[in-house]
Design a protein around this nucleic acid. Structure first.
Lengths: 251, 251
DNA sequence: GCAATAGTGTCTATGAGACAATATCAC
DNA sequence: GTGATATTGTCTCATAGACACTATTGC
């Protein structure tokens, strides 16, 4: 069996070419109605000065999920399991391993996708000195293959809003239907009909549940007080909220 | 920046703990109306005699996709790009990297999912001596974490049939609507209403296109000749074919 | 009062699914 | 002829989306 004999050859670490495994995180949040991604500025060669996704080596005795959560915590200055980071949604995106995606050596990376509510500017942590939230449409020319990773993450995020309640991961613990609609609009990049969206969200079992409260005051430019909701217990939306204007998948 | 300094430390391969990266393939096909997965029998320690997903090391100068296609070709005895292997659908599933998932060393694996039309028994290739197609409900107690990988692959496959035309990857180049329905039934594990399925498939633009031909003769137990179709040019099904009896995602 | 927004009502087109009906074939 | 299967027809219900309408609030 081919795989078995290869495994055995690897028993001596020095007999095998050096490879490394990292995690990179596409961390998304909504700021000022815009979808933003967490980027760091590289301080060292190669590609010094270029922006990149936060990431780093997977450590010994650490799972991939743990490594991703640790990196996210380091770059945001927040500690996993503390405060708002407990509400961050984190899921594996996919892996990238083209032979020369890193010029120094063979580096495989496992990309993660994170949905975060609006977090403070990532200045608190020491490691986060060069980290910042950047609107996704301004996040170009990233280091390595991070443009492609970001694009994959965005597509995944847009698709996930359709059939999961993960949009609530971008909101605070309590939110109005309008806030939820603005999250969808920011991620999908298109406005949604307020009335239909409102009725539809409430018609999906388990998507949101009412708190019984309303906002303290109406909107900035007038309007009634909105009812407040929190995330429900649904794992999947049924029926789904499909994106409006998308070409048919014919090509 | 944490990740950068770690990268630099890795410049000396010997300074870094040995890790390995493999690909494992969840290759699915339909045989005799049952969904089957390609398994190999391990001939060497550890876990000798246990069944496992086919897989092996990613080689130098090889992309992950190429490694997965190579492994699949080795185990099926077919050569990538030749014959029926050109029609195999292959996509990345996800990665697994728990610290002790392999008892010998730190091994990260990138799992792939393959949809194949009914292939000959994998005896032709020398490497494939111990490989065989096993009905998925009999594929238990696999080596390492392959039970979990298989479960993830099955869930992905079932979901993909809903919104992509990939069911056609299990069929021959020409097929009847009934054959397509039996593929759905095998993957989803439930019967589908013939009349409604038939009308629905034809109503999705680009799912299938008529060849103008019919089968040479009717069914084994009677019935008219069925029209033949081939895969259309759709990448996504719109509207989707949703699975019938699934609990709502509440929990 | 005026403008903006929350929330609801109505209407239409489309799709899902239950069920029935018809046509064609193997035997 | 008999039974099985392919294919089409009909009916009902749920949903998406367009649009209109009312109520409530900030200014």
């Amino acid at each position: 069996m081919q795989s078995e004999s290869e495994f055995l050859a690897a028993y001596d670490p020095r007999a095998y070419p050096a490879v490394a495994v990292t995690v990179d995180v596409v961390a998304l949040t909504i700021r000022d109605g815009r979808l933003c991604v967490l980027l760091v500025e590289r301080g060292e060669q190669p590609l010094a000065g270029r922006r990149a996704l936060p990431g780093g080596f997977v450590r010994k005795e650490e799972t991939l999920d743990q490594a991703a959560m640790r990196e996210l915590g380091e770059e945001t200055g927040l500690r996993p399991g503390e405060g708002e980071l407990t509400r961050v949604h984190l899921e594996q995106l996919r892996s990238y391993g083209d032979p020369h995606r890193d010029p120094r050596m063979r580096v495989f990376t496992v990309a993660y996708l994170a949905f975060a509510p609006s977090l403070p500017d990532p200045r608190a942590g020491s490691d986060a000195a060069a980290a910042s939230w950047v609107p996704v449409d301004e996040a170009r020319d990233l280091a390595f293959d991070h443009d492609a990773i970001l694009a994959d993450g965005l597509e995944r995020a847009r698709a996930k809003l359709e059939y999961t309640p993960l949009a609530t991961a971008f909101a605070g613990t309590e939110f109005t239907i309008s806030e939820l609609r603005q999250i969808y609009a920011a991620v999908w990049g298109e406005e949604l009909h307020a009335g239909n969206f409102h009725r539809k969200v409430l018609s999906v079992p388990g998507f949101v549940e009412s708190t019984g409260e309303t906002t303290a005051r109406g909107g900035e430019r007038g309007g009634p007080r909105a009812k407040l909701y929190r995330a429900g217990d649904a794992r999947l939306l049924h029926p789904a909220l499909l994106r409006p204007t998308r070409e048919e998948g014919v090509r």
